[in-house]
Design a protein around this nucleic acid. Structure first.
Lengths: 344, 344
DNA sequence: CAAGCGTGCTCAATCGATGTAGCAAAGCTG
DNA sequence: CAGCTTTGCTACATCGATTGAGCACGCTTG
């Protein structure tokens, strides 16, 4: 099975290659990490060593290499979940963009659990990450606090913090535009001008507050008053959202502003659990390819993951002074459902 | 800003802690990695060292630790995408399950690109991974070939290979049951007994072949003949799927077997792009929470990610002889759409 | 031909944590 | 109190790659 029986399951090292090539480990090292010209190794020897390395299936030991080098080139990311389109896209694009820049991405999923977030930050410190992207962290400043004394820069993504630069969506503007749209649609389709419901998220969390502000602004400019009872912010979870809707007696012909695709899952479950599906329209802050085709959908605000990450990497490469906050505009995704199409 | 001005941005090492504690680096090391009882360090010293470590915000240097240790405890995973429910769930649960077992998960996303897969496998070798899970790899045997000489075990997930044990869904059984369901639904709703369409995937790929076999078996047992023109396998991509449907003139009242949620995205786009939405029913191999509520949905076959990963970790912990292939049954997710509910 | 320089390479220290071997002191036994 | 064990710790080599310092040789120059 193995190529040579005298080396059973041992990865070859530069010492092994040096022995085979009849050269020194230093020569081998410099050839394999591309510094051989600078170190005045002859092209002939370089080629011979490269060939032997290929034959032996050599791969650097990153542990040894990173231990010796001053820079690890590791950029860590903590992220709450993988299994929705927004965070999935962030993880996927972050990885690709880091690799493009010659960095090593290491991503850890924290399930929105503050204790796991801290643990993950510590683990990334142990990996000697140079930089940590805290995505949607429940307590970004706690993370920054842990990293600061170790000299690890933190960048907040999706939710802002004060311990480092932050890149977030324009939650206010996006929410205002989305609320306007839903209000228009409800009036057009149902002739009603009653206030919308706001569903999902947490009242303490920055994004929810900003979106609520946009939501209320859209109502205010139309002179519509929003009673407290229309605001349901019991967290990010489909089942909690479903439960809080089920506890209510929603009117027919209503409009719902949904704060995330996760909450939307709860809304949709609630709609379909009812004996008679309610007449309603919703808009969602966040995008999902299938949710885009649901009948009652009026439109979705898609967060511009590419633009946000571009900004994050700008901060990785050129650390800014202080803790600036960049707001990235969202992309409006119109409804694709047949209902919306025939109506519009 | 920093706690002590003489140590600006340098992580403390065991040598620093040893100096402060007035003890040896060995003592510090053994206290911090929990082997101090075995090494007969007094509880008093252990406590003192722990306290100092906490004060100084110490975190092990995993590069150094792993270099010295014989085992890295790293398990690598390569995965084609993050941004759909199936792979997102795999990544998320893999990470949690690895951590539960005291292992370090490192996941790399390869965009279904064979070259990136090989590159990722090499990188994971360099991280000294002990084990590599190749998920949905386009060429799992190539990966196994690279890893074998380095003594890295590979386990194939989702798509089988011959270079190591494989854990896959029961694609045949699941597809047969799903095809039966769609056929029943089409007959009930439209009174038609014409063959279904099979859409998405690649003819060369194992899962698609097995699912096709199940699809054909369901037709065969009803005596329905399936013409070649009903099989559209032009890859895993929403836009290719949409394009191949657009090129066809699908009959009204048809039934479609969709080979993945990614292909389903194409199908749904196609449906909504038509001036008059076609009468049809579809079933999908793979589950998505929103797709479950689409009107024409007859049901979805959800792959049992938890069971598959449990089997993967069984193989990680107890390497089997040879290259067994385990088939995990799928979970049937009935349709949730109003249409399906009123009809059924 | 001595002095100087460029070429092509090697030596050895180093990164931080680990663990074996071993040392000194205290406690116990006969 | 010699001879033993036990306790509590330290010294040092080691993992594999990197890199500053430096050696030996050949060639040029005055």
């Amino acid at each position: 099975m193995t190529e040579s029986d005298d080396a059973p399951a041992k990865r070859p090292t530069i010492y092994d290659l040096a022995q085979i090539a009849g050269a020194s480990p230093s020569a081998v090292s410099s050839v394999l990490n591309g510094t051989w010209q600078k170190r005045r190794i002859s092209a002939k020897l370089a080629e011979r060593i490269s060939l032997i390395a290929k034959e032996q299936g050599y791969a650097v030991n990153l542990q040894a290499s990173m231990l010796r080098r001053e820079r690890s080139r590791i950029v860590g990311m903590i992220i709450p979940k993988y299994d929705n389109r927004y965070f999935g896209a962030i993880a996927e694009q972050f990885e690709a963009m880091a690799r493009e820049r010659g960095l090593f991405p290491v991503i850890t999923c924290t399930q929105r659990d503050p204790a796991l977030e801290v643990e993950a930050a510590r683990e990334l410190m142990s990996y000697q990450a140079e930089c940590l992207i805290a995505t949607g962290a429940t307590d970004p400043d706690r993370i920054a606090e842990i990293c600061a004394p170790a000299g690890i820069r933190t960048i907040n993504l999706d939710l802002p913090g004060t311990g480092g630069p932050s890149v977030v969506s324009d939650n206010f503007g996006g929410a205002r535009d989305l609320a306007r749209l839903i209000l228009d649609r409800v009036r057009r389709d149902f002739g009603s001008v009653s206030p919308l419901f706001f569903i999902g998220g947490r009242g303490q969390d920055h994004n929810t507050r900003e979106r609520l502000r946009g939501f209320l602004a859209a109502h205010a400019e139309r002179g519509i008053d929003v009673p407290e009872t229309r605001l349901l912010m019991r967290g990010y979870s489909a089942s909690k959202t479903e439960a809080s809707l089920a506890g209510l007696d929603l009117p027919q012909d209503c409009g719902i502003f949904v704060n995330s695709t996760i909450a939307l899952e709860g809304v949709i479950r609630w709609i379909h659990a009812r004996p008679i599906p309610p007449q309603m329209r919703f808009g969602c802050f966040d995008w999902d390819p299938f949710a885009a085709f649901l009948d009652q959908n009026a439109g979705m605000m898609r967060q511009d993951v590419g633009a946000m990450l571009a900004q994050v990497f700008a901060f990785v490469e050129h650390p800014p002074a202080g803790a600036p906050r960049i707001e990235v505009p969202c992309i409006f995704e119109p409804a694709r459902s047949a209902l919306a199409a025939t109506a519009g």
